[in-house]
Write a protein that binds this DNA or RNA. Structure first.
Lengths: 122, 122
DNA sequence: TCATTATTTCAATATTCATTGAGATATTGA
DNA sequence: TCAATATCTCAATGAATATTGAAATAATGA
């Protein structure tokens, strides 16, 4: 997903709040199965109302998505949206300046090679 | 530069505002030589006071830096800080999920190979 | 249908953030 | 030292965001 500036602004705004940043990290770790709203709220120590507010914010920003599963609403990371944001940042910040992108590129081989991916997720 | 969560929060907050995001993009394009505060303010259509406020915000967040040069204050992109943020995002969002990092990795070869780097910067 | 559980919505309040204009500071050249 | 330039700082105002608790909605099982 290729982000334009207004979407990127929303995404940065969504990630600029402690509770929400924690939520995203938790949901990324949780993987595609996701977690119920209640469990997320508990994990980040937020009231149900506050959790709902922040989850809605993240969903509007395209960083997570939700589905109902019986009584629960399950949220999960939107990997397309997240990678879109990384791309936006890299395109912006590379624009002819490899010194920004190259260290980041190293992360890919560091965390995403089959051997280390599972170790890093633990 | 390896960012921890509080620094990343600051950086995301700094980039979540239209004027500031534009400033960063302009400064990245400007390269290490940077630009005077006045020129930046003009480029993003902000009053001197407003420009000063946002530039200070970005500097506090570690995304740009400044030096005095005669009467002017020259701001320039902090490439270490920026790549630190990309790394943070990738580490967070990779954690075992290569689908986030791999598309971003493609950007590196897309924009940072010598041939395309200059074309992309135009 | 009723009680229970999970979550959201709403209104009120508090907090944080952005913009403005006036004035302060630093640097330079005459 | 004075006037001009470039930028910053400050206080006031307005706008956007976060938090809270209470009430509304949705789904389930008895």
């Amino acid at each position: 997903m290729k982000l334009e500036e207004p979407q990127a602004l929303n995404a940065f705004g969504a990630l600029s709040q402690e509770t929400r940043l924690k939520m995203v990290r938790i949901l990324v770790q949780a993987g595609p199965e996701g977690m119920a709203a209640g469990a997320i709220g508990e994990a980040v120590d937020a009231s149900s109302s506050s959790a709902s507010f922040h989850l809605a914010h993240l969903e509007r920003a395209g960083l997570i998505q939700s589905r109902r599963e019986s009584r629960s609403i399950i949220y999960s990371a939107n990997f397309e949206g997240l990678s879109g944001l990384v791309e936006f940042l890299m395109r912006d910040c590379c624009s002819g300046h490899p010194e920004v992108c190259l260290p980041a590129a190293a992360v890919v081989s560091d965390c995403c090679t089959p051997a280390k991916a599972s170790a890093g997720a633990a």
